[in-house]
Design a protein around this nucleic acid. Sequence first.
RNA 1: GGAGAGGUGGCAGAGUGGUUGAAUGUACCUGACUCGAAAUCAGGCGUAGGCGAAUAACCUACCGAGGGUUCGAAUCCCUCCCUCUCCGCCA
Length: 430
Amino acid sequence: MLDLQTLRNEINDVAAQLARRGYVLDIARFEQLEGERKSVQTRTQELQAKRNTASKQIGQAKAKGEDVTFIMAEVANLGDELKQLETRLEVIQQEMLAFLSVIPNTPHATVPQGKSEADNVEVRKVGTLPKFDFEVKDHVSVGEAMGLDFETATKISGSRFSLLKGPLARMHRALAQFMLDAHTDQHGYTETYVPYMVNAESMRGTGQLPKFEEDLFKVPRHMGDAGVENFYLIPTAEVPVTNMVRDTITPLEQLPLKYVAHTPCFRSEAGSYGRDTRGMIRQHQFEKVELVQIVHPEQSYAALESLLGHAETILQKLCLPYRVVKLCTGDMGFSAALTYDIEVWLPAQNTYREISSCSNFEAFQARRMQARFRNALGKPELAHTVNGSGLAVGRTLVAILENNQQKDGSVKVPEVLRPYMGGLEFIRAG
RNA sequence: GGAGAGGUGGCAGAGUGGUUGAAUGUACCUGACUCGAAAUCAGGCGUAGGCGAAUAACCUACCGAGGGUUCGAAUCCCUCCCUCUCCGCCA
C-alpha cells in the first residue's frame, strides 16, 4: 500500500511513477474521496466533541444533584446526525482503503522502463553452458525412466501435479536440505517452520489480497453463526514468514531479521492455461526455500543485493549456469519496488528460465502489515521487507536433470548433494 | 467434544455507567543530590487519525474483535476470536 500522506501531497508525481508500470491512477476518484472524507470527518469530530463535553457536564451536574434536563435536551438531537455521519465516514474510509489496496508499488528509479519480459535487462551471466555430443532430452524424458511420473499424479489429483519416486524423490528432498543448510550455516538466516494455511489478513499484508484472490487456493472454515471464514493455502513462504512481524514493533538492535523457510507452495495458475503444460515447470503444488529479511529502510537495497547473492550461491554450488536479470516496470510484481530474477539454463528449451525472484518491497508490505521498528529517536517507523527464492526446489531438480544428463541416459548428481544422498554419484534408469 | 478461568499501556496489575486515555508498581528518559554510581526526591513517558509549516496547541478514536443499550461504556447485554486449566479423543 502506498502512503496516504504522500498521495495527498504529491499525487501527480506518484501518478507519473505508476504510469511507468502501466497503471493509471484515478486522480479524480482520489480527490473526490479525499474531499468528502475531509468534510465528513471534520463535522463528525465536531459533533463528537460537543457530545463529549455535554456528557461530562451531565455527569458533573448529577454529582452535585443539579437538574440536567436542559443539557440533556441540548444533546438529544445530536444522536441521529452523528450516527449518520459516523456511518458515512466509515463507508468513505472503506472505499479509500479499497482504492489504495489495488494500487501497485511505485517502481524504484533504477527500474528499466518496459512492457514485458522481453524488456528485462540482463545484469550478468554466470557459469558455462554444457555441451552435449548427443541429442538433448528435456527433464520429462530424462526423468520418466527414473521415477518422474506425471500419469499417476494426474490420476491422483489432475493436471499440474507431479509425483517422484526413488532417487528423484530423494534428490528433491536433498535439494531442500542442502539449501536450508547453506542459508542457515553460511548466510546467517534463522530457519523457521510456518503454517501453510493462513488467514485473509496475512494475504492482505503481503499484497496477494484483495487483488489476486483468483490465484489462490481457498479453504473454507465454518465458524458457527458467524458464517464462513477462509484459510488460504500459501502461494509462497513469503506470506507466513513476512507476516511474523505484522503488527509488531521490532527493537532497532534486532534488525535485520533474516528468516529462511522451506515450504510447499500452492498456486491455482488461473489464466496460465496452455503455458508450460509439459513437465514440472508450472505446478499447482511445488516446494520452495524462501529467504525473507526485515530491514532498516536505509539498508534495504544493500540487503536485496546480498540476498540475491545468497540465492546465486546455491546455483554456483550446484554448478548450474544462470543469469540475473533486472525486471522492467511492466514485468514486476504488484508489491515490488525492484526485482531481480535469477534464470537457470535449461538446455532442452535452449533458454534461461526463472528459478528465483528477489525483490525489495520497501515499505509497501510493511505499511499494510504495520510492521515497524523503533528508530533511533525511539519512534515507531515502518521497516522494509526484502525476499527471494533460494531456490524453487522443483525447478532446480528440472535444471539438474537437463544440465547433468549423460549420453547413457543417467544423471550426474552434483557433488554438494551427494552427502545428502548416501554418496550416490549417478541416478540411473530403472 | 465437555467443564471452568481469563483477555486493560513495554511488563505486572487496579478499575461501584459519569472530570478514566485509564490508579499503582516496574522498566525507560530528564533533572536534583553525589567526585561518580547506587539509593532517594521531582518531572516526563502509548498508538493512530484530523487540523496545521510544525516532531506545537487543539480535537477525535483506541481497554481482544464486531454489534447493541445509554446523554455518556474498560465497566451492562449479544455474537465471535484468542489464551490458560481439567476431562475426553488423537499423530
